[in-house]
Design a protein around this nucleic acid. Structure first.
Length: 315
DNA sequence: AAGACGAAAGTGGTTGA
DNA sequence: TCAACAACTTTCGTCTT
């Protein structure tokens, strides 16, 4: 019987190979979609740069696996020719390691030259190749999982194909493509976080993002405050219990329509603040505001609204 | 002394005429 | 294109623990 343990599963899975540094328990939840490993009992985000290095296909039984397995690196969209082009070695040696004759060496150098010209031929190719390495760089710095970077690359390819780059900087478009990808995969990063690792400022990324969304017809659901809870809670070293409570509060608040038009980060921050207070793991408004990148005043205002409309009485 | 609270004025972006 | 508008920020003074 075939061993399937190394095949990708559909959703989050429980792993027991290491233990949580906070509570020491052995049950960790590995979630490829969100690229996080969290502790099942205390909710600590143990590892948030989980990379999925598996093949892009999935096999459901041994026969399929046999058929799909093949040589070569997985095809990827983050290399401008999708990683498929031939690479000519730079050493002037043949396959046995012997030095090449002068004629062969001249031929090889001509081949190399033409290969470079073929690979990065016109300006759009050059643009793509720069942009994709940029996406990879930013993605790596933000510790974004491979699938998010792939999605960003696809988006960028589409903008090039539609000739939408004119006058806009590559930097701002790559940044927005990543921002879009993050939201598509519900691993939200704030505009500020992306701006911090690029030369483009928050305003500019926002502008290009709206531009992309309009021109490419990308429809994104507004970011849910719930998506921010695990990360913020982890930054604040709050327990899984508090996270659960915060999400519960958010459920009620959202159904009351209290959150429409409000910034999701402020809402998430206030919910966490209340949940922490209820669980006697108080954090100051300042601390919560800081990880959520909003001001104390905003936390206060959301907090006030929630307590008032939900009839929550906080001692 | 630190944190919570609130008022007031300013900012950047959306919307609708 | 401009003005109204809501959400959010900045700043600062007061109250509470």
């Amino acid at each position: 019987m075939e061993d399937f343990r190394d095949l990708k599963s559909d959703g989050p899975e429980i792993v027991e190979e290491s233990s949580c540094p906070e509570c020491g328990c052995k049950r960790l939840i590995r979630d490829y979609e969100r690229a996080e490993v969290t502790c099942a009992s205390c909710g600590l985000v143990v590892d948030d740069h989980l990379l999925d290095l598996g093949p892009e296909w999935r096999a459901f039984d041994a026969e399929q696996r046999e058929k799909r397995q093949r040589g070569g690196a997985p095809m990827t969209y983050t290399i401008h020719d999708m990683g498929l082009s031939t690479v000519i070695d730079w050493r002037d040696k043949d396959i046995y390691g012997r030095a090449l004759s002068p004629q062969s060496r001249a031929q090889m150098s001509r081949l190399r030259k033409w290969q470079m010209r073929a690979r990065i031929s016109d300006s759009t190719e050059r643009n793509l190749s720069f942009a994709l390495s940029e996406i990879d760089r930013i993605g790596a710095q933000l510790r974004l999982p491979r699938n998010v970077r792939e999605a960003a690359s696809v988006t960028y390819r589409r903008t090039i194909e539609r000739r939408l780059i004119r006058g806009r900087s590559i930097e701002s478009l790559t940044a927005s493509a990543l921002y879009v990808a993050c939201r598509q995969f519900a691993v939200p990063r704030t505009l500020e976080e992306i701006a911090a690792v690029t030369k483009v400022d928050k305003k500019e990324i926002g502008r290009s993002y709206r531009f992309l969304a309009r021109e490419l017809g990308i429809k994104l659901a507004p970011t849910s405050p719930v998506d921010y809870i695990p990360r913020f809670a982890s930054d604040l070293k709050l327990s899984g219990e508090v996270q659960g409570k915060a999400i519960e509060i958010l459920g009620k608040v959202v159904s009351q329509g209290l959150t429409s038009g409000r910034g999701p980060m402020g809402v998430a921050a206030a919910a966490l603040y209340i949940a922490a207070e209820l669980s006697h793991e108080q954090r100051t408004q300042r601390e919560v505001a800081e990880v959520a990148r909003v001001t104390e005043v905003t936390v206060r205002n959301r907090y006030k609204e929630m307590v008032e409309y939900l009839g929550l009485r906080v001692p």
